[in-house]
Design a protein around this nucleic acid. Sequence first.
DNA 1: ATGGTCGCGCAGCGA
Length: 257
Amino acid sequence: MRIATWNVNSLKVRLPRIEAWLAEVQPDIACFQETKVADKAFPSLAFSTLGYESAHFGQGQWNGVAILSRVGMEDVSADFGDGAGPDAEARLLSATCAGIRMMSIYAPNGRAVGSDHYQYKLAWFERLKNHLAATCTPEQPVAVCGDFNVAPTDADVFDPAKASGGTHVTLPEREALAELERWGLSDAFRTVWDAPNVYSWWDYRAGDFHEGRGMRIDLVLMSAPLVSRVQWAVIDRNARKGKQPSDHAPVVIDVAD
DNA sequence: ATGGTCGCGCAGCGA
């Protein structure tokens, strides 16, 4: 079974590339982030034509997350299920596909260390941990996939001192990730590859992609019964090349059926 | 050292 996650940075602009990518890579389950469309504008027909059921949680111009599956989709749930009310932004969608509790997440950027947005980011991760505890257990197959806007270690950043104005690499952000791991999740990519300087996002500006200046901030976190099934992992750099790419590349994880 | 490009939507902000 092939599981993928991709921050597409606008479903509308990216749809032709997404369709070609689905046909080529053939994921069984795909999570998308930053769809930037309202639910009524979500192109579910384009995906059903390719054999996928789909669910979307959007808000219009910003944010928005989706899950596609060709191995079934049940118990779709938008937003947090921690009982603390709705988030102001569309950043979390959950569904069960082939027995796996899938979550497509788009963590807040944080903008600047210490800003209100940075505090919202840290609070958002706290809610994600509570959402996990309230809606599933680490003893079942769980995959939290998406744009975490956190680089787990300095090996995941081209230059920690220059990275994104200080955010994405701070101790509190990394501690928020570690909290999710303590709950019972593992970074699936790192179970296959330990090489440094492998990235999933590169700024559009200044030729950063071609110069190799990026960060690995798109992650697939899996619970123990699922991560034990991992067979292969890759970040699909080809999807970052050519005309009108997203600034993120997909992360693809193969697990035994 | 600085700024650089996209997407949104039509000015300038967010990433």
